[in-house]
Design a protein around this nucleic acid. Structure first.
Length: 889
DNA sequence: GCCTGGTATCC
DNA sequence: GTGGATACCAGGCC
């Protein structure tokens, strides 16, 4: 990483990766119209394009084995002798791959009598000596020996797109030996794919142990007589084999190469040649992925992140002495097997300290632990909640979270996707962070550990976080969101972390009963559906097949049009049922229902962790309006409307050591916010009076006394009221209510004649947003909506509906977040053991400890009520029970 | 094996 | 031709 200024050399083992691609993609799905198989070409090219795009190498080569033998098969004719004959569909794809390489202007290299690996080894050495960063891509484990501080191996885990990064640390973690010692280990263990048998009874663990004890294979062989045990005996009986293995698995680093390193410089692809080759191979989507690599279409490559000096010696003491605002980075992971293995800290942008948590003394442990737990030391992280979990798993408390550059970046522009550190650095600083694992969750274990020291990477990242904070936090302030950031989102991080950590207890037995029932119901409905078709077993889960059955075979009337034909969604099927009743439709709907349910239940059952609880992950940086999101599993879309939904919610129970679940939800929060923001006197009055809102509105709209509002009137105004906040049109309202458009329009007119300020508000909020470029919630959260000035009608209409909705949905999100902070503070201040476990947009769920139920109910009511000072009261409904369903009533 | 679209659930 | 999400499945990729 430090040598990146000299460039990056990408070296690919052509055949080994082509083979992986061949077996990863079904050959029958990939062929030209003339029957030429292309799955390996497709997979290999996709992989290479991704590597070129992500790593932006300055130099590239793809090495090939040539047909016929090598010096190894001369030495040992049986070498690689167990390999099955290559499938006939593979062979013809190799020249095609070379054609693609030609179009990409990537040099293909080979050498008679040698393997591709020897070429990789030689070029890796040359690149290393030239001070380059080298990436070797190979599915051959022998290449592990090439790994060092500057040479990383990308090894396919499955397919060709999921590549594991083998750095020296990663090799040590997986195999227990240094990369240079891997051939020693392989010589002892053997390599089936090369037809090299190992020492019977010696596996990687024993081999690694011996290598540790005797310092390597040579030492082992010299002391073979002293090696104890049955394994030692076995070793002595196979010395020759081991020597031979070691001889053969050594890769040559000193070949004479026909193409000098300098000629591997990558000039970018040839657009015309890409078109030609994609035409010939009938690649459609790939063309679009390859064309950006063409030089003609090229743009300046991003700047590489500046080198950061990361010190590791004495890091604990140095970090513990930091008292100002410190940027922190935790290398670790969340989830069931959460752990942290390295820590980086920076209080200057170009210098940082890194700590490998594996080699801490007990004193270091407690020094660092105390520093982390000190709430007075302000820490800024990128994705602080992840760090919190990783450190918590290691038994440390993280306090003093004062900033989160991920959240800052979100507030600055919440509509963007991708808030990983790499992406944010790129977006806001134009910096390319090298060796970043593809954006994802926490980094995987194998990606951990920098090239030289586990703390290296963490330190570098901490320094980057510090730079980022210096840029993003002022932007947050400039946009008037300083308070929202520091007083709402940042303190909320810890609340959410605790909620995730607590999780929700689940009644597994109940869940599995439900799963069985739903599965049985789905199966029965499926059989009914097949019967209705005269026994044909179409795939009921395939919209494509359903379209064929419904609209062609059964000749049913067409439903609403979608991209791929005609819709088969539930509402369309219900419509069809009325127009053209058929037992198939009934059975299909029943099957949809039951299979969806069974799938939900199954997912939940699988999500139960060993502690008997489900731990979701909340995100503050997904929903552009400021709502939280929940995933893995999503606990914010558990069914609730139906009887079956109720039974699922019964599976969420109070956990051991606790007494009850209490739920509290805001009553009609969005309508109240609309009343507040619009200042509509009639609407404010309705809420102030505490009447049934829809009855009140109905009486005004229809001009009858409240007690004379019929259920139908009530449901019509209810749909209208809710639709308003979403930008509902008269057309949409008509559809939803099953009215003629004219009637729906008349209803809207009547509505607005009584609640005119609402209409004025909705208009003004869009106008304001168009003028300012953004919308704003009651608490100053912004959402930028550039499409409001789009000349494209459809985009503009969508933007207008977003502008209409964002302040309402966003203010509701702000309110409940404020309430959550209040609830958390009260629980702590009052020394209660009860805890928040779930938020579902307008609802909070608390698990209460014995004797605390009344106190908790009061806290919920008071804090949710006091979360905002609106011109209408914030009403809260509270329920209690041993499970979520009971509590929710 | 990855990506997209359709369908489903929630507020 | 109502906003904001997440999850699963099938099918296309050629």
């Amino acid at each position: 990483m430090s040598e990146s200024t000299k460039g990056t050399l990408l070296l690919v083992d052509g055949l080994s990766m082509a083979f992986r691609a061949f077996f990863g993609l079904p050959v029958e799905n990939f062929a030209t119209s003339t029957g030429v198989p292309t799955n390996a070409v497709y997979g290999f090219t996709t992989m290479l394009a991704t590597l070129l795009r992500e790593h932006e190498p300055t130099h590239v080569a793809v090495a090939f084995d040539l047909p016929g033998g090598t010096f190894r098969t001369e030495r040992l004719p049986s070498y690689k002798g167990t390999r099955d004959a290559t499938p006939p569909e593979f062979e013809p794809q190799v020249p095609l791959i070379r054609e693609v390489l030609g179009a990409l202007r990537v040099p293909a290299v080979d050498k008679p009598n040698y393997e591709a690996d020897d070429l990789l080894a030689t070029y890796a050495r040359l690149g290393h000596e030239a001070g380059m960063r080298v990436l070797v891509v190979s599915g051959d484990r022998d290449t592990i020996q090439l790994v060092n501080g500057d040479v990383t191996l990308l090894y396919p885990r499955k397919g060709v797109s999921d590549l594991v990064r083998f750095t020296p640390d990663a090799v040590r973690e997986k195999y227990g030996v240094d990369p240079g010692q891997y051939p020693d280990l392989a010589a002892l263990v053997g390599e089936t794919s090369d037809n090299l048998p190992g020492v019977p009874g010696v596996g990687p663990k024993t081999a690694a142990k011996w290598i540790g004890v005797y310092g390597g294979l040579e030492g082992i062989l010299n002391s073979a007589d002293d090696v104890p045990g049955k394994a030692g005996e076995s070793l002595r009986a196979h010395l020759e084999q081991v020597r031979l293995n070691r001889e053969l698995n050594h890769l040559l680093t000193d070949l004479e190469v026909a193409v000098p390193l300098a000629d591997l410089e990558y000039p970018g692809a040839d657009a015309a040649a890409i078109h030609e080759v994609c035409d010939a191979l009938q690649f459609r989507t790939l063309r679009d992925k390859l064309l950006p690599l063409a030089t003609d279409a090229g743009e300046a490559s991003p700047e590489t992140a500046p080198p950061v000096v990361v010190q590791t010696a004495g890091a604990v003491a140095a970090i513990a002495a930091m008292t100002g605002t410190v940027a922190l980075h935790v290398d670790g992971r969340g989830g069931v097997d959460a752990d942290a293995w390295a820590l980086g800290a920076a209080d200057a942008a170009d210098a940082a300290w890194g700590v490998d948590l594996a080699d801490l003394s007990p004193e270091d442990e407690s020094t660092l632990g105390a520093w982390l737990a000190d709430p007075n030391i302000a820490k800024v992280l990128h994705g602080a909640k992840d760090g919190w979990h990783a450190l918590t798993a290691r038994g440390w408390e993280l306090a003093g979270i004062a900033g989160d550059t991920q959240i800052a970046a979100f507030l600055v522009n919440p509509d963007q996707r991708g808030f990983e550190l790499e992406q944010i650095l790129q977006r806001h600083l134009g910096l390319a962070l090298e060796s970043g694992p593809t954006a994802g969750e926490l980094d995987l274990g194998l990606d951990g550990g920098g090239a030289h020291h586990a703390g290296q990477r963490a330190g570098e990242r901490a320094a980057h976080v510090r730079t980022l904070a210096g840029v993003l936090e002022p932007m947050v302030d400039e946009r008037g969101m300083g308070a929202l950031y520091r007083e709402l989102e940042i303190p909320l991080i810890t609340v959410l972390a605790r909620m995730e950590h607590a999780g929700m207890a689940v009644d597994r037995a109940h869940l599995s009963t439900l799963a069985d029932e739903a599965r049985a119901r789905a199966d029965r409905a499926a059989e009914d559906a097949y019967d209705a078709l005269g026994g044909e077993r179409v795939n009921l889960g395939s919209p494509k097949q359903l379209q064929e059955v419904l609209f062609e075979r059964l000749g049913m009337p067409k439903t609403k049009k979608i991209k791929t034909g005609y819709s088969t969604d539930a509402s369309s099927l219900h419509d069809l049922s009325e127009k053209a009743p058929h037992p198939f439709l009934t059975a299909l709907l029943a099957h949809r229902d039951a299979s969806k349910l069974s799938q939900i239940i199954e997912t939940l059952a699988q999500a139960v962790q060993p502690d008997g609880r489900i731990h979701t992950t909340f995100s503050q940086v997904v929903a552009a309006t400021g709502r939280l999101s929940s995933k893995d599993p999503n606990l914010q879309n558990i069914p609730v409307r139906t009887a079956e939904g109720h039974r699922i919610r019964e599976a969420f129970v109070v956990g051991e050591g606790f007494d009850t679940l209490v739920t509290a939800d805001y009553s009609q929060i969005e309508m109240r916010i609309m009343a507040h923001l619009s200042g509509d006197a009639a609407l404010v009055e309705a809420f102030a009076a505490g009447e049934d809102l829809h009855r009140f509105v109905g009486s005004r709209v229809f001009g009858v006394a409240p007690e004379d509002v019929s259920p139908e009137m009530r449901s019509q105004v209810k749909a209208m009221s809710y639709g308003l906040a979403y930008g509902l049109s008269s057309f949409g309202l008509a559809r939803q209510l099953g009215l003629p458009v004219g009637a729906a329009q008349a209803l809207m007119d009547d509505y607005f004649s009584r609640f005119g300020a609402v209409r004025d508000y909705l208009r003004s909020v869009v106008e304001q947003a168009r003028a300012d470029g953004y919308t704003e919630t009651i608490f100053g959260r912004r959402r930028y909506i550039p499409d409001l000035t789009s000349t494209n009608r459809q985009r503009r209409d969508i933007a207008e509906r977003m502008a209409l909705n964002a302040p309402i949905q966003g203010s509701a999100a702000d309110l409940i977040k404020r309430a959550m902070l209040g609830v958390e503070r009260r629980l702590r201040d009052e020394g209660l053991a009860s805890r928040q476990v779930l938020q579902v947009h307008d609802e909070l769920v608390i698990e209460t400890a014995a004797g605390e139920q009344d106190a908790v109910e009061n806290i919920l009511r008071e804090e949710m009520h006091a979360a905002g000072d609106l011109s209408v009261p914030l009403e809260v409904n509270v329920g209690t029970g041993a499970d979520w369903r009971t509590a929710g009533h």
